[in-house]
């Protein structure tokens, strides 16, 4: 499978760098601490929020900048001359991002075990689907036709940071006003956070099967859009 070769290249080239791994863990951890300190929140609520943020940030951390980097390093033309389609390239990038997202999410899961928290193993399935969905979202960010990683990171940050505030990570969705609940439905992170909360025995916002269907739906839309947009954008990077 040619997409595995792309994924392997991405992991060695972009993901297995000290700063990337450390940042993937530290950013959610600091956000977590910032909201934990001084607030009387249950450990279950905080850990599930941390898991959600970790999967989300890890899966969207590097995937947006791979295409601009490849354009800037002038490695893209060599890749495009190989007998592979844009779909294979996108799948390879998504696969690398999923692997990283799942790998990093093991840290807060282990933390939960250290705190003695019990959880349903359905969360593993949720993490895999969420990592896939968020990786596709990351690829969607990188479809903006530029070779400047900073531009893509700006676009990515402008979307990613607001999403964590409307997805029930820091404030339970049940406590949001009606308009807040409506907006939260637009974020794929909402559904994964709900899966995480349900897995840790907390009250659900939506039935769990709805969460899975929504995440799968978002994944398909993000993936199809990524492939279409990358087909156009890749050539402008040469």
């Amino acid at each position: 499978m040619k997409c595995f070769a792309i994924a392997k290249k991405d992991i060695v080239m972009y993901y297995l760098k000290g700063p990337v791994v450390i940042f993937g863990i530290l950013l959610p951890l600091f956000l977590f601490l910032a909201f934990w300190i001084g607030r009387n929140l249950s450990l279950n609520f905080l850990i599930t929020g941390l898991i959600s943020m970790t999967v989300f940030f890890a899966s969207t951390s590097v995937s947006p900048v791979i295409a601009p980097w490849e354009g800037q390093m002038r490695t893209l033309e060599r890749l495009l001359a190989c007998p592979i389609s844009t779909t294979t390239i996108v799948f390879g990038d998504v696969l690398a991002s999923i692997t990283f997202g799942i790998g990093i999410s093991l840290v807060p899961l282990l933390l939960a075990l250290c705190f003695g928290l019990m959880f349903n193993l359905i969360i593993i399935l949720g993490i895999i689907l969420a990592a896939f969905c968020f990786s596709c979202l990351g690829l969607l960010f990188s479809s903006y036709p530029t070779n400047l990683p900073s531009t893509v990171m700006m676009i990515s940050s402008m979307i990613r940071f607001p999403l964590i505030f409307i997805s029930g990570i820091f404030i339970p969705i049940q406590k949001l006003p009606a308009w807040g609940k409506t907006i939260s439905m637009l974020s794929p992170l909402t559904y994964f956070t709900d899966i995480a909360r349900i897995s840790f025995g907390m009250s659900p916002f939506l039935p769990i099967y709805i969460d899975f269907i929504a995440l799968a739906g978002f994944s398909v839309v993000f993936l199809v859009l990524s492939i279409k947009l990358h087909e156009r954008a890749l050539l402008s990077r040469l």
Partner: peptide, 8 residues
């Protein structure tokens, strides 16, 4: 105008 991957 193409390069090999520098970190590979």
């Amino acid at each position: 105008v193409s390069n090999a991957y520098p970190d590979l």
